[in-house]
Design a protein around this nucleic acid. Sequence first.
DNA 1: TACTCGTGGTC
DNA 2: TGACCAAGAGT
Length: 296
Amino acid sequence: MTALARLATGWYARHARDLPWRTPDVSAWAVLVSEVMLQQTPVTRVVPVWREWMARWPTPGGLSAEPAAEAIRAWGRLGYPRRALRLHECAGTLMAAHGGRVPRSLPQLLALPGVGDYTARAVAAFAYRQRHPVVDTNVRRLVARCVAGRADAGPATTAADLAATAALLPASGPAAARASAAFMELGAVVCTARAPRCEACPLATRCAWRASGRSLPALPSRRPQRYEGTDRHVRGVLLAVFRQASGPVTRAALARAWASEAQRERALASLVADGLVHAVGDDTYALPTGPTLHAI
DNA sequence: TACTCGTGGTC
DNA sequence: TGACCAAGAGT
């Protein structure tokens, strides 16, 4: 085992947050749902929604048997609601092609809706204890600092990221999975983007970035981050109307939620294009009702 | 590759 | 106060 993995794993055993999807007996389905919910969404907001989903849909069969609208409603305000739709599709794929179980191989996981490179590796490692590098934004930053001595990682995940992380992992699957969880946790709570807590870091004595004097991170790109008034905002406002309605929603109801007609129509069209909303009449729309597997 | 896609907390 | 950003995926 590499020294970094040993130090990180030891720290993790003492300081890891007590997150419900880390309980030893959680199913691969529960891990998969947690990973999708955690995509670009903070842990504190995911926890209560994940608990609700697991209580309601402990297996993919339960979710796939319900209309997609229920997944969208139960998604609440986690953001990026296409993830709820993909998770519902994913449950259907698991039932249709995998016997209701989450597959174990990376290629099969990658083929699932809503599962990309990160999530496939996270499920293989955390649910099945396989030895795959799990590279998220936290790990990339940790490795960039500790190993490469840079203030932050480059713009995109590359084969180099995977190779650099794989080189840190212990030989056995379970130990590698623990090390990956430890690296992610360190990046999330200690080696943070803005205010790293090097005094609390178990890797500090071996960190190239710290040894070289902690050069400042590059200035953030100047892409506008404004949310108020964007099309994304309008989509959120309109979809909230659909979530709260028990049935179909009229154009008039949407007009009450957002005044600008051009922007409202543009947002509605994009929701329809994404499959989050369907037209059910001339001036009426609703969350998607299908497909359900069967009507018992 | 670069862009789109929500939401709410933080400093 | 408002810019930044938090376990990415899909196109």
